[in-house]
Each structure stands twice: as structure tokens, then as C-alpha cells.
Design a protein around this nucleic acid. Structure first.
Length: 635
DNA sequence: GTAGGGTTAG
């Protein structure tokens, strides 16, 4: 066996080497050298290895440099990597493509793309590995466009790409929203016969899934030569992102049938799908499946599980998960804070946040968004201002999101002028969301003039959002200015801004039933409407007066009252009352904010029907019980 | 020597 380098007895090697060498039982010299080589390679002190070379104690071979570079790559030691690179340049060795490829990769993995690019540019020759390593570097360091730009250059120079190249390119295309480029690369990929590879396929189907093109994603998936956990997970994650719980669950069952075991990626996708639709029963089922499969509750899954319970309306279960997590990271804390805020538990959010601080956990920007929005939902004005100031303490500069919550906080409290002054004095440029918060407050407090002013700002900054014109029209309508309300509606129609249709849904016996406004396609609709009539009589007996201000169309009085009956949250509620066992808590989800009239009606329903009713709207949860709501009518 | 999938705010 040929020794790789020699340890000269006349020089003093590193003490750890000496002590290890002296403890070796074998006295065969080649074995000694091999053992020493192994030791040095495993040594945590790469700089010392370089100094041993400098002092003449070691005679390096090319693969010693190669090993050292690899170590620096894996450990992400940029400074040491640079030293090894420099040392190699001053050595007797010629530039070697294998080693330089490793150097490019080392700089990429250590996040120094400039250095990687410099080595790349100066290389006398480059192969597919060189190109792919740099592309991957860009793709993994949030420069996906730079990764994509390399591809035509590479093809132009006649370097044929391989499956590694395509896997990276599709990832980059997905991250850069570069879907047109992605599709072109897909064509090239087919030409090179790489599209059936499972790595390429997972990345490619993920790219299609990210633009909600599940049909294409499935086509890619079905064509794969062989599937693995990653390709299944990419598919399930695609459905989960689309909040298509039904298909996510279906693919999950297929995955099981095909003999693949769910991983923590699978579970977290499924939990986030259930969180999106608020499907508590399905979420619980997946949770049970996970426990049975022996998958541990690591932080990553725990956070999505916690989030699922919170978003599906069970803050108690969310808290249980939080308490059971053995390692809580900042995301766990943020999720729990957000859960409390979302459920209107302002005081609890604050005490949880103080607990987090007392544990010495460093809050981040999102932490403060959670805390501030809790203050806003609970009307805790002084606390909100206090926590905004506290950000400085943690060296966090408030971002526009934080200013939005403060405007919201002031606005909800009715301090509209103060809110406007706050916007004027903001150190950063207010965006549409900031003005939108003021507009929302004007809607709440029926301030037409300021509302108009705020609305104009929003229209300028975000002309495509249907929310603000609807809000403005509602301000006019709720103050009886029907002509102006109709004017805004007309303007919307002409400019092509479409209002998102209101819809509500409810989970009954493991399936989700959705009710879209003015859609009577549900098979039980006749029965539901008849049942709502009965409820309506009952709640009128205990004082329900339909609030016609919430029907914001220019129609006559009678029709206005009739239209109120058809708000989708009422339909969903009637459906749930008809189909759920007595006493079971009803959980209704709505895609937009719950309307004031429905809010009053549901409060009374909770009383006359003796039911716990939980409604999740776009902003928060409402827990209705015994005739009142947890939001204290402040939302 | 080069590759793919997951969470938190609004």
C-alpha cells in the first residue's frame, strides 16, 4: 500500500496526533501512516493540518486537499475553506477540475457566491458538475434567477446537463416564479431523457404544484420510473398548499397503499391542509395515524399540529400539543401566540409572551406581529403601544406589518384621527395594508369622509384588491348613501375588479360541506332553508331584529330582509344544526369577515338552541355560547 | 465533485 503522506520523525507533529500514534498497537509503518492520515483527516483542526504541511511535517497529495475542502463544506467553515483553497493555489499541484469543482461547491454551501463565481470564472475548463454546483449555489441562496441564467450559457458551450442539473433548475424556476422558463426547461429535460428520474420528477412536479397546476403535477408524477417518499410528499404538499384537503388525504391513502411510509414532511403537509380547511375531525384522524405509526412529535410536526388544532377551532388541543413539545423553538412560541391572538385571548397572549421572554427565547418579527394583533383584537391599546416600543429592545426594526396592526388598534378603538396622524408620522412608506386598516376602522365607525380618503390611497396602491371598494361601498350603504354606494359598485364592475364570493363551510362526519353565497346547489337546500325559517322565528322571539344595514345592495326593504336569510354562515349553521348530534360543538369557517347581522343572529341561536358555536372568519375566531360571543362584539 | 419534498403573521 502506498503511503499518502509521510510523518517525519524529526519534526514535532500535533500533540493529539502524537498521543494517538503512540497508542497504536500495530507497528507496521504503512498501517501507521494510514492511521495517522485518518486521524489528521478527522482532525477538527484543518488549519493545523495546513501548518504541518508548511513546516514540512506532511507531504500532501491532491486528495488531502480534496478531503479538507469536503470537511469545510460539510461543516460550513468558510474561513478554513478559503485557507485550504489558497494553500492549494500556492502548492505544486496544477489546477484540477475535480478539486476546483469541490471548491466551487464549498463556497456555495458556505454562502459565498461571489467567491464561488470567481473560481468558476477563472477555471480553465468546466464540466457539468461545475455548472450544476454553481446553479445549486444560486438556487439555495435565494438567487434562483441567477441559477436559471446559467442554463442557456451551459447549453451554448455544449455541456450536456444531467439529472442533477434539472433537479436544481426546476427548484429554481419554482422559487423564482419563472414558470415559463420552467416549462421550456421541462422540454429540454424530456429531450435529454431526464424527466423520468425521481429527483428531477419531484422537483418538476413541485414546480407545477406551486402554481396550482395539479393536473400537470400528477402527469409528471404518474410518469416517474419509480416513486419514493419525496415524490409522494411533493404531491401531497401541492394539494395542501391549495387547501385541497380532500385530494391531499386521497393521495395520502394511496401513498400508504403503495407501501410508502409517511414521513414528518407528509404529516406536516396533511396538518397544514386540515388547518386550511379547518377540518378538525380529519386532522385528529391524521394525528392518531401519526401516533400509531410511531412518528415522534418533533418540533417541526408539533408546530404544524399545534397550528392545525388552533385553526380548526380547538385552542385547548393546541395548548396540549404546545405543553407536550419537548423542544419549543421560536416557531412553536409564535404559533401558540398566534393561536391565542386568533381566538381573541389578548391577556393570555401577553402572559404567554412574557413567559417566552422569561425563558430567554429571542422573539422575532413574527412574534411581535402576533402580540400586536392580539392587542388589536382584544382592544388593548396601551399594551399594543408598549410592545411596539419593546421591539427596539430586541434590536428589531418595526416593519410595515407592525404598523398595520397599530393603525388597526387605534382604528378599532375609534381613535381615527390619531390613527391618521400615526400613519403620517410613520418612518416608512405606508402601503395598501396600512390604509386598508384605516379604511376598515372607518367602516366600523361609519366615518365616510376619512374612509373615502383612505380608500383612494388603497385604490392607488393596490387597484386589483376587491376588498377596499367593497368596504367603501359598505360605508356609504351603512350611512344610507345608496347612490354613492352604487357608484362604487359600478366603478368596480367597469374596472373589472371582482368581489370574492362569500362562502362558509362546516365539517360533518369527516366531510366538509361548503355553502357559497347565492348558490342553492346543495342537495339538502330546501330542508335547510325551511329549518332556518324555524330558527328565525325562535330568535326573533328573544329579541333578534334583522339589521338591514348589513344588506348592502340597493334593493327594497322586504327583499333586503329576505336576502339576509341567505348569508352563507347562516345556511352553514342551519345545515350543521340539522345534521350534527345534539350537544356537539359546531365549527363554521368563513372566507371573509362575519357580518354584523349574522353575528347577532348566531349569538341568539347559541342561546335558544343551547349550542356552542365557533365561527372562524378571515380575521379571528368567535366563540358563541349562551347568547354572547367571546369577541365581546369587538372585532 | 453536482440534485428533489414540510411550519409560523396579514
Amino acid at each position: 500500500m502506498k503511503p499518502f503522506f509521510l510523518l517525519r520523525a524529526t519534526r514535532t507533529p500535533h500533540p493529539s496526533v502524537l498521543s494517538s500514534v503512540s497508542s497504536l498497537s500495530s507497528d507496521s509503518s504503512s498501517s501507521l501512516i494510514l492511521q495517522t492520515k485518518h486521524l489528521l483527516r478527522k482532525s477538527q483542526d484543518r488549519l493545523h493540518v495546513l501548518s504541518l504541511i508548511d513546516s514540512g511535517s506532511l507531504q500532501p497529495r491532491l486528495d488531502l486537499y480534496s478531503d479538507l475542502i469536503k470537511q469545510c463544506t460539510n461543516l460550513k467553515k468558510l474561513r478554513e475553506g478559503m485557507a485550504v483553497h489558497q494553500h492549494f493555489l500556492s502548492s505544486r499541484f496544477n489546477p484540477d477540475i475535480f478539486l476546483l469543482n469541490s471548491v466551487v461547491n464549498m463556497y456555495c454551501k458556505c454562502g459565498s457566491l461571489e467567491d464561488a463565481r470567481k473560481v468558476f470564472d477563472e477555471m480553465p475548463e468546466r464540466d457539468v458538475v461545475t455548472w450544476t454546483a454553481l446553479m445549486t449555489g444560486y438556487a439555495q441562496n435565494e438567487q434562483p434567477l441567477d441559477a436559471l441564467r446559467l442554463f442557456p450559457m451551459m447549453l451554448g458551450l455544449g455541456v450536456p446537463p444531467n439529472q442533477f442539473t434539472f433537479a436544481t433548475l426546476f427548484k429554481a424556476a419554482g422559487a423564482a416564479n419563472g414558470y415559463e422558463i420552467g416549462e421550456q426547461v421541462h422540454a429540454v429535460c424530456v429531450k435529454f431523457g431526464c424527466d423520468l428520474d425521481v429527483y428531477v420528477g419531484s422537483s418538476l412536479l413541485d414546480m407545477y404544484a406551486r402554481q396550482e397546476r395539479m393536473l400537470e403535477a400528477c402527469l409528471v408524477f404518474d410518469r416517474l420510473e419509480s416513486k419514493n417518499e419525496v415524490s409522494w410528499n411533493a404531491l401531497i404538499a401541492g394539494y395542501a398548499r391549495k387547501v385541497d384537503g380532500e385530494n391531499a388525504m386521497m393521495k395520502f391513502r394511496e401513498m400508504q397503499r403503495s407501501g410508502f411510509k409517511a414521513t414528518h414532511f407528509t404529516y406536516s403537509s396533511l396538518f397544514s391542509a386540515c388547518a386550511g380547511t379547518g377540518a378538525l375531525e380529519q386532522g385528529k384522524w391524521v394525528h392518531a395515524h401519526m401516533v400509531k405509526s410511531g412518528q415522534k412529535l418533533i418540533a417541526f410536526i408539533g408546530n404544524t399540529l399545534l397550528d392545525m388544532y388552533a385553526k380548526a377551532g380547538s385552542i385547548q388541543d393546541a395548548r396540549k400539543v404546545f405543553d407536550r413539545l419537548d423542544k419549543r423553538d421560536v416557531v412553536s412560541w409564535n404559533s401558540m401566540l398566534k393561536a391565542c391572538a386568533h381566538h381573541g385571548l389578548g391577556k393570555e397572549t401577553i402572559s404567554l409572551f412574557e413567559e417566552m421572554r422569561s425563558f430567554g427565547i429571542q422573539p422575532n418579527h413574527i412574534t411581535f406581529v402576533c402580540v400586536l394583533s392580539a392587542c388589536s383584537h382584544a382592544g388593548l391599546l396601551a399594551e399594543g403601544q408598549h410592545y411596539l416600543k419593546m421591539m427596539k429592545l430586541y434590536k428589531l426594526e418595526p416593519e410595515v406589518e407592525h404598523y398595520v396592526t397599530v393603525v388597526d388598534l387605534l382604528g378599532r378603538a375609534g381613535l381615527l384621527e390619531q390613527a391618521q396622524k400615526f400613519i403620517d408620522e410613520m418612518p416608512i412608506e405606508p402601503n395598501a395594508a396600512v390604509w386598508g386598516a384605516l379604511l376598515g376602522a372607518c367602516r366600523m365607525h361609519k366615518n365616510v369622509e376619512l374612509g373615502k380618503f383612505a380608500a383612494e390611497r388603497v385604490f392607488q396602491l393596490d387597484p386589483h384588491d376587491s376588498g377596499p371598494p367593497v368596504l367603501l361601498s359598505n360605508i356609504y350603504a351603512s350611512t344610507g348613501r345608496w347612490t354613492e354606494a352604487a357608484g362604487v359598485r359600478k366603478m368596480m364592475k367597469e374596472s373589472g375588479v371582482k368581489k370574492e364570493p362569500a362562502c362558509s363551510w362546516v365539517e360533518v362526519e369527516n366531510s366538509v360541506h361548503m355553502f357559497v353565497a347565492n348558490d342553492d346547489s346543495h342537495p339538502q337546500i330546501e330542508e335547510i332553508l325551511k329549518f332556518w325559517e324555524e330558527i328565525n322565528v325562535k330568535i326573533k322571539e328573544v329579541g333578534y331584529v334583522p339589521d338591514k344595514n348589513h344588506v348592502l345592495l340597493f334593493v327594497d326593504e322586504e327583499e333586503r330582509e329576505a336576502r339576509l336569510q341567505y348569508h352563507c354562515e347562516k345556511i352553514a349553521l342551519a345545515f350543521a344544526l340539522l345534521n350534527m348530534p345534539p350537544g356537539a360543538t359546531i365549527r363554521i369557517m368563513k372566507n371573509i369577515r362575519v357580518c354584523g347581522d349574522c353575528h347577532s343572529a348566531i349569538k341568539l341561536v347559541s342561546k335558544v338552541m343551547e349550542r356552542e358555536i365557533i365561527v372562524r372568519d378571515k380575521n379571528r375566531f368567535h366563540h358563541f355560547s349562551k347568547g354572547s360571543c367571546s369577541c365581546g362584539d369587538y372585532w
